[in-house]
Structure formats: structure tokens, C-alpha cells
Amino acid sequence: KQTHESTQSHRSQLRTYTVQLTSLLPASSCSPSSIVPNNEATLKVVHKHGPCSQLQAKPDHAQILQQDQTRVNSIHSRLSGKSVAATAAIDDDNPRYQEDSTTLPAKSGAVVSSGNYIVTVGLGTPKTDLSLIFDTGSDITWTQCEPCAKSCYNQKETIFDPSKSTSYANVSCNSADCSQLKSATGITPGCSSGTSTCIYGIQYGDQSFSVGYFGKERLTLTSSAVIDNVLFGCGQNNQGLFGGSAGLLGLGRNKLSIVEQTAQKYNRYFSYCLPSTSSSTGYLTLGNDRRASRSVKYTPLTTIPNGASFYGLQVLGISVGGKTLSISASIFQSAGTIIDSGTVITRLPPTAYGALSSEFQKQMSSFGYPKASALSILDTCYDLSGYNSVRIPTISFSFGGGATVVLDSTGVLFASKISQVCLAFAANGDDGD
């Protein structure tokens, strides 16, 4: 516990964290968090590539950052409303499935699914446990399904087989639920000619995609939180970088997201905590979290033009080491800000990032830490070899509504190795992005 703890101090008038360097790198064994909300619908959140996860694929830090940039490009593309049509079928070779196709835009309404955090849910009766990427930046929940008519990528768990579930039902083509897919995915749904079953398609900005039957199924979050008739994609043609997970849990704002589908039960309320390292655990809770303390600070939820599925925030300012950066409020207002569980590194308008990086470097320099080479999109890096612990400036965000949030020390740095520890922020291409 001591390894992962950090403390703030106020020496030299600068507010700093004291960080144990071992806490920046993942441990080899899983240490579950003892803090769990008092709620029946609470799922354990783990990092996809850490020792608390059973999934295999383990990209290196540069690959994670590369995938993260692809996701950010995808979000920006989605907000710009640009798309190009392409087609993917469930099975080109099997006559039975030849008409079961849907048109996929090459740059669709979906964002890349490289999110790092997964939860395990049960699907069907009897239930099949599936590890799904949890994503507040997308809407549709889908998993790979037998018989994988066209293609399934390797996943750790048993692939869901709807024919073995007594609670599975197809969604018909002429239903309102099928029509709703267009706004959730940006793709017009298809229709299976034989069975009139609705066919969904979703394609991500890195060209990963899933196409299959749109169905309803029993979703088991915990033994006491079971939801019937949850609409989900039962994927028959799935390709992409999903890291061995079984699919995606969409927590966006569209009517087909899990948040909206469970609105009557959980009142459009959910919360989560992402663990400080990939070797510890966090949680995702649907419904009111009775553990929410009075110290929680609230900021208004906003909506972004052309981005109704995203959760918008109003950033007003940033402080480094207790010093408020001189950034005009219009810099943040012109493009807006979203909060996203699937983007790794916070992206700021270039003007704001420049001010943040400059002040961070100034304060780190005053502590005497040597610089290191850049790591992919991260350009403010330090060689901390030889230190057991370091002092780093605190970083806090001021949001609309008077909420000021001091980031945890683990939310400031991204380390590939002790000799290359980087400020975990990056700039957008333009202040208008």
C-alpha cells in the first residue's frame, strides 16, 4: 500500500506530490482494491493488459500511445461529421449469409475501441462470462457470437452462443430498436432476408469492425443485478484490435447504450473509479452509489455539437504546483471538452498544453530532474534513474460550476521505464479541435 500511496506537500510554496517510483510501473501480481461501493450493480474494473486481467495481448507503451492517437483522430473525425462508405458482409462465401450485409462507413460514427479498462459481465441463460471494454465514448454493446459465420478474432473466454441461451431473441428489421441503430452507430442497419432479423454494423476509426445480428438478451451484472431484454450486437464478422476482449460495453448517451437501456432501473446514473496501476482494481457501478461522499465536486454536464453521444465538460483553467496558468477561457470554450474512459492521455488545445508543459518543466527543473527523450506523443519526459522517490508539481483542473479537482499523482505521469517518465498530457493539432 505504501508503494502506491503518494502525499502532497507544500514545501517551497509549490504544491507537490511525493511519488514512489516503483508505483509508476506495474507490479507482477494483482492487488485488488479494498474500496468497493455499497451497491448491488458494481463490477470490478481492471486494466486490460495488467496482472488483474486474463487477457493476453500486451502492446508496448509506444503502441498504446499510437492507438490512443488513432482514437483521438477518430473522435475528431466523428465530430466533423465526415464519413466514407464501405461494405462488409457477414459471410461472402456462404450463400445463406450473402444478403446479410450492411454498409460500413470507413470513418464511421464510432470511435476506436482501444480503451484500456475492462469489466466482466454475464450474458444469456445460463450465463456466459465475458470481458468487455467499458467505454463512455461509444454506445453499442456487442460481443462475438457463434457460429462466427464470417470471422471472429481470438478472445480469451468462450465465445457467446445464442443457440445455447434460453433468453436470447432476435430483433426484427421493422422494429423501432432496429431503426435506432443508425443514430448509435452512424450506419444504416441491414436486414436478413430469410429471418427478417436486424443486422447491425459498427466500424471504428482504425478500421476495426463488428457486424452481426441485433438481439436481446439477459445481462447479469452481479447475482442480484440481472437485466432482461438488453439490446446488443451478436457479432458474426469481427475484426480488429480488441486485445482478446470479448467485445464492448457502450456507456455513451444514445438510447441504445447500457445507461439508457437501464434508465428505469438505474435512473441514468453511474460511476466508476479507474485503478492507479494496472496491478490494482477499480469499479463500475450502475445506479446511485451510496458511498459518494460530500467531498464530491460537481460540474455541469454539457453537450458537444455533432457529438450528442459524448459527455461534455466545461474546463475553465489548469494549475501546476498551485500556480494558475495564464490561459484565456476562450481557449477552452472554442472547442469544448469531453470526458472519455477510452482515451488514455488528456488532449488539450495547443495553447493550453504549451502553458502546462512550460510551467511543469520550469518546476521540475527547479527540483533538478534531468530531461529524457520524447515518448511518442509525449514530449515532456524525465530520466529519474537513481531516485527512489521524486517530488512533482500537483496538477489541478477547474471546471464549470466551481469544481476544482486535484489529479491523483498517478494521473500526472506516464512511465515506459524509470529512465523515461513523461508528463501524461498531449496537445491537439489546433486550438479549434
Binding site: 474546463v315 488539450l348 479537482v405 498517478t410 494521473g411
Partner: peptide, 30 residues
């Protein structure tokens, strides 16, 4: 847009009260 990413959300309790039109941040959430 700017994006508040998941590294910066670590250990924060992030609350989405969509009906209430607000997002909450609590420190030391896990």
C-alpha cells in the same frame, strides 16, 4: 475538442448523474 482522458481520471470517483445534468469528481475513490 479537448479530451479528459483515463490517465487523469485514475483514482478519482467519477460520477455521471445524467438526469441531474452533472458530473462529479471525488478524490481517492479506489
Amino acid at each position: 475538442v479537448a479530451i479528459f482522458g483515463n490517465v487523469q481520471q485514475k483514482r478519482l470517483q467519477v460520477i455521471y448523474d445524467i438526469g441531474g445534468g452533472k458530473i462529479g469528481f471525488g478524490q481517492g475513490g479506489c
